[in-house]
Design a binder for these strands. Structure first.
Lengths: 223, 223
DNA sequence: CTACATTGGTTCAATATTGGATCAGATAAA
DNA sequence: TTTATCTGATCCAATATTGAACCAATGTAG
């Protein structure tokens, strides 16, 4: 069941743990200190830490303190939690690695039905009236390109990237960098990519995707 | 200025949900906040949210809040479990996409310390006496190349691939395809890659990695 | 060893937050 | 007009948070 402030505090604590905050001695600050730091009552911190105790990321001892359990860095859960802290710059670098290649795969592998799905997402993005609507169809467009690749693993990697980018700090960033002018540029670039796909032109698709991602990077990171 | 009706608000909310706005903890803002944000009475927001509740996209709890029900397709756990079923062919395709690029990054970004770590893993693999030992240092060699990339996300993707390949069906496959002769080929190819890295030759490193992975693919998939 | 400070464990009453429900009046469309 | 919808307001019920006090286990200084 979802929780409120306590849950948010638990999330913050997890982030700071996975960022390596208290790894030197594995000991967390006292609950009273955390309460003061977060500006909430100790009871609330206690609930938050209770959640961490439930998933076993932490153990508590009366009179001694709260300690991190030795998390296996090779566990998939640990990897995923580290991935969630991916910086926008790192993410864009990998997108520029994967997505042009995916576009090239798509040009040779896509079925007519799949290409139609890409086209539909493109048109919906072009007709979108506001930022969340456009954002949705933009993401859907990229996702449907990956769906054409016939490589399930690649598709899942893209799902992972999409999920990371859907987290709130990213959302704020995208909202800041959005403008009607940029939306129209994106639509033109999507169109170029779509054209290359229907022409079954792998190199053209690859190039079109790379150009598009360079634009996105410039808008998002401001460089 | 068009008037906001409950239905329109409902569709706006749906868009924002599908754009990933509140996925971080699945909790929507309080109705009173939404009412203020949309500049509309709370009753109207209540009807709008009521529609979302009817389609089951949302559940409401008195005193707690309104929560998204859609967790599944975007759940990271679900993605990872799908990834675990990745076929060797799909995996090799993505390795050939990522690892040559990673090798190129490594050639330009690696510190001397990191290059030494790569060399150590290479030597340990060359001196390995049995297949599990070699397998370990081989994986470690590739991992240390990724560690040179200065892109944490890329490093984690490689961790993920490594974890998947460490599962038992993969191990059996690797055991079948192993031979002393092949081990020596791998060592020579690793050496070529290492040489390119210490020469700070991105293109050479990329090519060496690609050649190596083609060999691995041929041995593993028999084609 | 003793005395004291620190820290997590527990409980309780008061307050704040949040969704649920209803009503009278205003506004707009048919 | 009639009908439907939105508004602004009020109260209720369920849940969360607060602030405080006290307990028990542990560590530390003397």
């Amino acid at each position: 069941m979802p929780k409120l402030v306590a849950n948010e505090i638990a999330t913050m604590l997890k982030k700071r743990i996975s960022a390596g905050e208290w790894f030197q001695d594995g000991r967390m600050p006292p609950e009273r200190d955390l309460a003061a730091e977060f500006g909430v009552a100790r009871n609330t911190v206690r609930r938050a830490v209770g959640f961490l105790e439930e998933d076993g990321t932490v153990v508590r001892h009366v009179g001694r303190g709260t300690f991190l359990t030795a998390t296996d860095p090779t566990s998939i859960a640990a990897m995923v939690s580290r991935m969630e802290g991916t910086s926008p710059a790192d993410m864009m670098e990998i997108r520029q690695l994967l997505e042009p290649a995916a576009a090239a795969f798509a040009a040779t592998n896509a079925s007519a039905t799949e290409l139609n799905a890409v086209r539909e997402a493109h048109q919906a993005a072009c007709e979108a009236s506001d930022m969340p609507d456009f954002e949705h169809w933009d993401a859907e467009f990229h996702h449907r390109v990956f769906a054409c690749c016939r490589n399930d693993f690649l598709k899942e990697i893209h799902n992972l990237m999409r999920a990371i980018r859907n987290q709130s700090p990213w959302f704020e960033m995208k909202k800041r960098s959005f403008s009607e002018e940029r939306r129209q540029v994106y639509c033109r670039e999507h169109q170029a990519l779509l054209d290359a796909l229907v022409c079954r032109d792998p190199d053209g698709a690859k190039t079109a995707m790379l150009i598009h991602l360079k634009t996105v990077e410039k808008n998002l990171l401001g460089r």
